[in-house]
Amino acid sequence: MKELLVIILASVFVNNYVLQKFLGICPFLGVSKKLDQATGMGIAVTFVMLVATAVTWPIQTYVLESLEIEYMQTIVFILVIAALVQFVEIVLKKYMPSLHKALGVYLPLITTNCAVLGVTINNVKDEYGFAQSMASSLGCGLGFLLAMVLFSGVRSRVDNSASIPESFKGIPSTLLAASIVSMAFFGFSGVIDNLFA
């Protein structure tokens, strides 16, 4: 149990996918303009990461490894995740219209998101078991959500600031702000290892 907690906390703060591994930057910059959109996207990504891991981990362990075709991992994972997200969208549309409305716009955006693929592949690379993989995915999703929410706050300040030079407005100032938030997260490295020591 303690091990799972460490994995979750480590993937939220220390190995944050957006701010430390720089995966999933596209939605991070694209959908972080408003707080509600950022939250919606964060929750959708968390959801997809969990579902994707639940499917790809058995495929990797029971099929790819037993057939000794681990090199097909990337292609198979992309295929499975893309189909899965589409399937989930259809199911949600039919049985949970309210949830579909909340996640609806963001689900197709995540279909081939690199953060989702990154989580599933890194779970395999770190030789996690099923429970550990799920914990790691949950942590990564929460980390993404945290980064989105924090950054939407930073961004609403930066975008509305009058003191930004004309040529820095828009994407340049956003990227600068992102780098500063990312540097702030470096402060967490080393914390987790000693937290439960």
Binding site: V76, V80, A83, L84
Partner: peptide, 15 residues
Amino acid sequence: LPAVLFVGAVGLICA
């Protein structure tokens, strides 16, 4: 062959 068959099968099942 195993790789081709497997990826093909996965694609077919997904479709």
